[in-house]
Design a protein around this nucleic acid. Sequence first.
DNA 1: TAGATTGTTAATCGATTAACAATC
DNA 2: TAGATTGTTAATCGATTAACAATC
Lengths: 211, 211
Amino acid sequence: MIEKKISVAVIKRLPRYYRYLGDLLENDVVRISSKELSKKMDVTASQIRQDLNNFGGFGQQGYGYNVEYLYHEIGKILGLERKHKLIIVGAGNLGQALANYTDFEKRGFIIEGIFDVNPRLVGMTVRGIEIKDIGEMEKLVLNGDIDIAVLTIPKQKAVKIGNDLINWGIRGIWNFAPIDLKLKLSSDVVIENVHLSDSLMTLSYNISCKE
Amino acid sequence: MIEKKISVAVIKRLPRYYRYLGDLLENDVVRISSKELSKKMDVTASQIRQDLNNFGGFGQQGYGYNVEYLYHEIGKILGLERKHKLIIVGAGNLGQALANYTDFEKRGFIIEGIFDVNPRLVGMTVRGIEIKDIGEMEKLVLNGDIDIAVLTIPKQKAVKIGNDLINWGIRGIWNFAPIDLKLKLSSDVVIENVHLSDSLMTLSYNISCKE
DNA sequence: TAGATTGTTAATCGATTAACAATC
DNA sequence: TAGATTGTTAATCGATTAACAATC
């Protein structure tokens, strides 16, 4: 699907464009120039035009960009036009928090299951979804119905379960365990690591600098 | 405190070094060369040496780096040698999840209060900490006892409360609301935005590319 | 048409990698 | 000492910014 190599920096900026365009859309803004958008987003207009032109020419000379059109085009690029089925692995606080985060559903991320090892959690429901024993996860994933697994489990378990999921054919892993999951080579699985403590440490660093 | 300008890219890598060194320390590894570490971390040895030398010469020719020493030095750089007092603003699922995340306490981030507007939550306790009405927050922050506010509130409220906190003298804001908090110019407050949906969209993009 | 703004090429800037002298 | 590995300078690479012709 990829022709030209798109840099990671560009990809990481796409959701931010999407977010700002969504806000503009909510405020009934019809068109916007790269210059106006650059002011709002605090980036250069040049960067916006460069970034977008990695994927195609979405604007019009003398006019700018149609907000609604660009919003949906970026949505398509990000793969948000299709539904993503996901499971949450680990029904602790974070797992439940993510399960309750309705914004994900709005963007087409549908929770198909929540799993945990803890018998005290199994059977409870979160947003109408029953927490099941983790042993029942294999069948569901092997069936090929699940796109993304959200790992909200301790790091000791993350490697084993991550590998299992890969073997069972999962397509993406959104990992919250404080470890960098390594892929088997040749695997096509995509992993996105969210290291909350890294983020907090960065904040701590920046605070220290102000002293 | 800063002499040389350190790039954001370098700073963002520090917590990862810290994490890997912590793991090595747990496994009783005494020394490591940039070459060995580069293999584990999947970066170049050159980059590791360059990054570290922004802050000083922590290694020794012919030997490499002492794991424990380097771990603590990076900890100091990140400001982890001192305690950080924080409050959690918004006691919903995510707020509670973060409050329950014991790893933060281990790193010296002490939760001094949890606040919410919802009367049904006020009075409940999370890890022994009582959820208080958000009206009581001002006094605590004005007292100057709080370093960091963790915002786990809807984006509609984030701007107002963020500004309040800045006026009251907060030093850092760890923002989970899906909005980029803008600072008043002249403010010395540090803001770290965590956009979980951005991360999920990046994952979605990468999955789409594999199709 | 005249003005505005894109798409895109060229120039600049900064970050990463390579190389190697210094030195443990 | 000889071997290893750092700290650091130089070279390369890539990303950002500037500029402007194309064109709506």
